[in-house]
Write a protein that binds this DNA or RNA. Structure first.
Lengths: 109, 109
DNA sequence: TCAACATATGAACATCTTTGCATATATACC
DNA sequence: GGTATATATGCAAAGATGTTCATATGTTGA
């Protein structure tokens, strides 16, 4: 586990890089599509509704950022999540997003 | 709690937007700097090592995305996290990042 | 070997974002 | 009111990113 968060400069940059990868709708869809198990590039292309070429471009970035893992089976290439952190992080963010406004503090004088 | 993740198109886009906000090193530093309690813009400017103007620009975006909350005290404006989800999400991602490589599966034939 | 299928890559283009600078607003104190 | 401090905003330039298209690589089976 982790007691506290204190990011040094490098870690901050590296972490931002991970978030940047998830910050693109198509890429995020590719990741979430892999939450229920490995998906082939073909499946992902159909699910995401974008060109196969574009899917591959995004998958390459996600692979490089270790947000997705690749393995081959015959002529298909499958992608899945490397660990459970991404999953729980997605859940947390989704909760945050779905939460109603709490601290709006309008300053109308 | 949340049983499963199934994002519709809109939620996906919205969630990606949140990640995009965290995907910029300076902005991520501003958010993490607020993890230990409210920080004034002045403090944040010193901590982040960028111009006050730029800090304000980023704070505005973080505010709009409800990743930070704003409240005024005298001539100072303080920022802090609106809920605990962002915190736990950051922890999860940090763990993911610090984890050693698991699934590299080199295909060298 | 060849053709057919599945995936990956390179380069050019269009777009979006970050940044810096100047300036505007807001608050406090005299 | 006027001045100093604290924060916010508008705009243009510079830089980074997503997308498309064409093509390359890798795999299977005849």
């Amino acid at each position: 586990m982790l007691k506290s968060i204190s990011l040094d400069r490098d870690e901050g940059t590296q972490l931002a890089e991970l978030f940047r990868l998830l910050g693109e709708p198509n890429r995020l869809r590719l990741v979430t599509a892999c939450l229920d198990g490995p998906r082939s590039v073909g499946e992902l292309t159909a699910l995401a509704g974008i060109s196969q070429s574009l899917v591959s471009q995004h998958l390459r970035l996600l692979r490089a950022g270790r947000l997705l893992r690749q393995h081959r089976a015959g002529r298909r290439v499958y992608y899945d999540l490397p660990d459970c952190h991404v999953r729980s992080m997605l859940i947390n963010m989704l909760e945050h997003m779905r939460e109603p406004d709490e601290g709006e503090e309008e300053n109308e004088s």
